[in-house]
Design a protein around this nucleic acid. Structure first.
Length: 523
RNA sequence: UCCCCUAUAGCUCAAUGGUAGAGCGGGCGGCUGUUAACCGCCAGGUUGCUGGUUCGAGUCCAGCUGGGGGAGCCA
């Protein structure tokens, strides 16, 4: 015994280093001590020094290592989800610390000194530390529970009646209005862990394949990165703007001495590093000031943009397919608990959809063939609101037909007409299409957009002229074609759209911690 | 930005132009190794904002603001 009392267990140590103690010890000293205890303020409850080492564990630790934990004294810290009382003299407290989807049930006996004064007043959201013995549960619904001998209230909920997160289903629209508290719900806890899992999978995928993560700038000096409105970055006094003699705003007096914006894409910058490190990617926030009010758009979102040298469109498409499969495989393996929840409560198909995606090759289809399929469907009676013709961009209804009805899973659409795509995309032999690809996903639409880049300076210049873009603005981009140019390709993957696809959540504002959308930036 | 819908208790929703209701959550009590527990009682409201029609507006009309669905832009 004395030996054990000196066994100091570091909070982060794995439980296997701790020796087991006979389970029948616990009730004895608990009964012996409880009657003599005077009720105290909870936060002042001392940590009892028992004969057994204390394990500081997360809920995930307890639930994932049941056998190793049963019989141990443990200390858990977290927030109360629910409390149920039994007049048999015990209360059941469900504790969550966010380390996994499930909660641990703590059984608090009436003999606790602060039972009536505090335990019976616990409500959803209270922060507590619970110490006790992990035991095999007598009840249904959990295999391990904690027989608490200390319940210490760390933080009360000041007005349980109006606490915004009640133990009941809430609408996502409502939870968006309390975005600072919604991580405490089942759904958003799961979203947070899924986000992390997928982000780590992205980095692992590229790292294992010899890619380098390039930190492309957030602030950009070129306002021509791509289509779309940009957010201005300025330290000028809005109420008193400096003017040039011509009357325009004098950006030479601004912080950077020129007009600057938040980036809408890291692509042009990462291409420069691709031309030296061969395989690179960016993964960071991007900003679009478009007035887009849909369930698929955010003003601030995260994008993954790989760029590969000595590569063509086919290799680019294969990379995108491999990345998506890697991410979703990791998700199913590492966050089975959260995905089970999404399948139960959000989207019954989400797990089988991912399993199907992982196990079958993506459909590849030329834009021209896509148009043919759509025309064939139309002639068979399929109704489209918008007309079809080669050379126009596909409407949402067209994309939806291809990916949802015709193919039933993601489809890679390739080789688009040049006039509907960006200047940097490589001209094909036919002179009328470019080596572009979009991956369309059911329920999402475009999840990936990419292309082989135009590496031939004369062709690039011709495109710049056609689109009436200023060559000076792109001088450094053109330099890449002057000095050791090589064929290269890349794509952009919308991180939140990937999460929407994986979880079946139907609004992109609910898969990012703090959504920024037009007229909405409260938190 | 355009079209359609919508705003009532802490939350989810009821209420023919005529006294503001329920369920859940909260408080109190009962019962129970409970599992979205169950039973009883109690508290809880400037019906989003501004104006209008009417004897009378939660309800009808106009404007504004927020939210949702769809479209465009895109990832």
């Amino acid at each position: 015994m004395a030996d054990r009392s000196r066994t100091c267990v570091h909070p982060q140590s794995p439980p296997k280093v701790v020796r087991l103690c006979p389970a029948n010890l616990l009730p004895k000293w608990r009964k012996a001590r409880a009657p003599n205890r005077q009720p105290r303020k909870p936060s002042a409850l001392p940590a009892p020094r028992y004969l057994q080492p204390m394990l500081d564990l997360s809920v995930a630790d307890v639930l994932s290592r049941k056998e190793a934990v049963v019989g141990q004294r443990v200390r858990l810290k977290g927030w109360v989800r629910t409390r149920r009382d039994s007049k048999a003299g015990i209360s059941f407290v469900l504790l969550s610390d966010g380390s996994c989807f499930d909660t641990v049930q703590a059984v608090a006996p009436a003999a606790l000194p602060n039972y009536t004064s505090e335990v019976l007043r616990l409500t959803a959201g209270c922060a507590v530390e619970i110490e006790g013995q992990a035991v095999a549960s007598q009840g249904k619904g959990q295999s391990v529970e904690v027989q608490a001998d200390v319940v210490r209230v760390v933080g009360w909920v000041e007005d349980p009646d109006s606490y915004p997160i009640q133990p009941k289903p809430h609408s996502f629209e409502y939870l968006r209005e309390v975005a600072h508290l919604r991580p405490r719900t089942n759904t958003f806890g799961a979203i947070g862990r899924v986000r992390h899992c997928l982000a780590m999978a992205v980095h692992r995928f590229f790292h294992e394949r010899g890619f380098f993560w390039i930190h492309t700038p957030i602030i950009t000096g070129s306002d021509c990165e791509g289509a779309g409105q940009m957010f201005r970055v300025s330290t000028l006094d809005l109420a008193n703007m400096p003017r040039t003699p011509q009357g325009t705003i004098d950006f030479s007096q601004d912080f950077f001495g020129r007009e600057t914006h938040l980036t809408v894409s890291g692509q042009l910058n990462v291409e420069t590093w691709c031309m030296a490190l061969s395989k690179v990617y960016t993964f960071g926030p991007t900003f679009r000031a478009e007035n887009s009010n849909t369930s698929r758009h955010l003003a601030e979102f995260w994008m993954i943009e790989p760029e590969i040298a000595f590569a063509d469109l086919a290799q680019d498409a294969q990379l995108a397919e491999d990345l998506l499969k890697f991410m979703f495989r990791a998700l199913l393996e590492e966050r089975a608990d959260d995905m089970r929840f999404f399948a139960d409560r959000i989207d019954k198909q989400c797990i089988t959809r991912l399993e199907h995606l992982i196990s079958s090759p993506f459909e590849r289809m030329d834009y021209t063939d896509g148009i043919r399929h759509l025309e064939a469907a139309s002639s068979k009676g399929k109704r489209f609101d918008f007309p079809l013709s080669w050379g126009t961009d596909l409407q949402s209804e067209h994309e939806r037909y291809l990916t949802e009805e015709l193919v039933g899973r993601p489809v890679i659409l390739m080789n688009y007409p040049k006039d509907i795509k960006a200047f940097y995309m490589r001209m094909n032999e036919d002179g009328r299409t470019v080596a572009a690809m979009d991956i369309l996903a059911p329920g999402i639409g475009e999840i990936v957009g990419g292309s082989q880049r135009e590496e031939r300076l004369d062709m690039l210049d011709r495109r710049l002229d056609e689109m009436r873009l200023d060559k000076h603005t792109y001088s450094w981009y053109r330099d890449l074609r002057r000095y050791g140019t090589v064929p290269h390709a890349g794509f952009g993957l919308g991180f939140e759209r990937a999460i929407v696809y994986a979880t079946g959540m139907n609004n992109i504002r609910d898969v990012i911690p703090f959504p920024r959308t037009p007229k909405s930036c409260e938190f």
